[in-house]
Amino acid sequence: SPISQSQFIPLGEILCLAISAMNSARKPVTQEALMEHLTTCFPGVPTPSQEILRHTLNTLVRERKIYPTPDGYFIVTP
């Protein structure tokens, strides 16, 4: 029987999409709110552990794709 394939999207890209959507909705993007958003909006995607989430967010900050503030994470705009 054929095996169904799913699209692979890197966690960093999913986080950027989620942060962008939450920023547009003016929702604060904390790590907890981000986990909740991922569970709700990406039900088929396994939720990352806190450690993996933190590591991926730090990587995105180093890559200058997002930036942290006391009010949460935001997408870097050119």
Rank of each mutant, 00 (worst) to 15 (best):
residue 7 Q to E: 13
residue 43 P to T: 10
residue 58 N to Y: 04
residue 15 L to Y: 03
residue 75 I to Q: 11
residue 48 P to N: 01
residue 24 S to H: 05
residue 60 L to I: 02
residue 72 G to Y: 01
residue 52 I to G: 07
residue 61 V to A: 14
residue 1 S to E: 01
residue 70 P to F: 07
residue 27 K to R: 09
residue 27 K to Y: 05
residue 55 H to Y: 04
residue 77 T to Q: 06
residue 32 E to H: 14
residue 49 S to P: 03
residue 39 T to Q: 11
residue 60 L to C: 06
residue 2 P to K: 05
residue 23 N to Q: 06
residue 52 I to A: 07
residue 8 F to M: 06
residue 13 E to A: 12
residue 8 F to H: 13
residue 72 G to E: 08
residue 10 P to T: 11
residue 42 F to G: 05
residue 47 T to S: 07
residue 35 M to G: 09
residue 53 L to W: 05
residue 73 Y to S: 12
residue 49 S to D: 04
residue 71 D to W: 04
residue 3 I to H: 11
residue 6 S to R: 08
residue 8 F to C: 06
residue 43 P to D: 06
residue 20 S to Y: 04
residue 73 Y to M: 06
residue 67 Y to V: 11
residue 9 I to F: 13
residue 50 Q to M: 14
residue 48 P to T: 02
residue 20 S to I: 02
residue 32 E to V: 08
residue 40 T to R: 13
residue 2 P to V: 12
residue 51 E to A: 07
residue 38 L to G: 00
residue 67 Y to G: 09
residue 34 L to W: 00
residue 25 A to F: 07
residue 76 V to S: 15
residue 22 M to K: 01
residue 51 E to V: 05
residue 15 L to G: 00
residue 21 A to F: 03
residue 56 T to F: 10
residue 26 R to W: 05
residue 15 L to S: 03
residue 18 A to E: 06
residue 33 A to T: 06
residue 5 Q to V: 09
residue 47 T to H: 04
residue 63 E to T: 09
residue 5 Q to I: 09
residue 75 I to V: 13
residue 45 V to N: 03
residue 54 R to A: 13
residue 66 I to P: 00
residue 5 Q to M: 11
residue 6 S to Q: 08
residue 44 G to F: 05
residue 65 K to D: 01
residue 70 P to K: 14
residue 15 L to V: 14
residue 24 S to M: 05
residue 69 T to P: 01
residue 18 A to M: 01
residue 77 T to H: 07
residue 26 R to Y: 03
residue 24 S to F: 04
residue 32 E to K: 09
residue 36 E to V: 06
residue 69 T to W: 02
residue 65 K to I: 03
residue 43 P to Y: 06
residue 37 H to N: 07
residue 71 D to M: 09
residue 74 F to A: 15
residue 63 E to D: 12
residue 64 R to D: 10
residue 30 T to D: 08
residue 36 E to A: 08
residue 4 S to L: 11
residue 61 V to S: 12
residue 38 L to V: 08
residue 74 F to G: 14
residue 57 L to V: 06
residue 62 R to M: 14
residue 75 I to G: 10
residue 11 L to H: 09
residue 3 I to M: 09
residue 8 F to G: 06
residue 77 T to N: 15
residue 62 R to E: 13
residue 61 V to K: 05
residue 5 Q to A: 14
residue 73 Y to P: 05
residue 55 H to D: 15
residue 56 T to A: 09
residue 5 Q to P: 05
residue 28 P to R: 09
residue 4 S to R: 05
residue 47 T to V: 15
residue 65 K to Q: 15
residue 5 Q to Y: 09
residue 23 N to D: 08
residue 55 H to T: 15
